[in-house]
């Protein structure tokens, strides 16, 4: 037996999705399936990798400290280059770490509440939440999803902006570290 839908309801384009009114079907398909969820973890993972890289660079510098001291004790042009490289590395890596942490935990922008967001759901009592969602019209449901998408997009932009800054600092920090390591290695070998 074929179940008939009310005339304003659409047969869903993707059959496993609940039906929406025809006028909202296309928007709802995109809004509910906009690929946003994977971006915040991606930014966090990259920031974590940057923190690891900076940690490794510090560890390696510490491991060769006795040769670093030997180069510093020379008091010639190598000492000056090493000093500049170490100072640059210290400052830039600190900025990288700060920006990486701000990527992982950004200051969230003020956003309208949305029943698609876990914190707003958790703020309600269970019965209130169920009652609100059950009483929702399709337009309101779509609106909740659009608000969520919009807020999450803003957060993603913020996160990737911070990450870009962290990378911006990390590259010259790596250069400084490389200079310091080359000088140390030369001291080690010769």
């Amino acid at each position: 037996m074929k179940l008939s839908l009310p005339s304003e309801l659409s047969d869903p384009v993707l059959p496993h999705l609940p039906a929406m009114p025809h006028r909202l079907d296309a928007a709802a398909t995109l809004a509910f399936l906009t690929p946003l969820q994977e971006h915040p973890p991606a930014a966090d993972a990259k920031a974590g990798a940057l923190l690891t890289v900076v940690g490794l660079m510090f560890t390696l510098l510490t491991g060769t400290s006795k040769y670093l001291i030997a180069v510093v004790a020379r008091g010639d042009f190598q000492t000056v280059i090493l000093g500049v490289a170490l100072a640059g590395f210290g400052i830039l890596s600190l900025l990288t770490v700060i920006e990486a942490f701000r990527t992982i935990s950004p200051r969230f922008p003020a956003a309208p509440p949305s029943l698609a967001f876990f914190a707003d759901i958790a703020r309600l009592q269970r019965d209130d939440y169920i009652q609100k969602v059950e009483a929702m019209t399709p337009d309101e449901a779509l609106e909740q999803m659009l608000r969520y998408n919009h807020t999450l997009s803003g957060i993603c932009v913020q996160k990737f902006g911070r990450l870009r800054k962290a990378l911006h600092y990390c590259r010259p920090a790596f250069g400084c570290w490389l200079v310091a390591m080359i000088l140390t290695s030369l001291r080690m070998v010769f």
């Binding site: 906009t34 609106e143 998408n149 919009h150 999450l152």
Partner: peptide, 16 residues
């Protein structure tokens, strides 16, 4: 509109 910078560039009303 499937890409987040594009969504974030718009206001909520424009996006809607």
């Amino acid at each position: 509109l499937a890409f987040f910078p594009e969504i974030a560039r718009l206001s909520l009303d424009e996006y809607r």
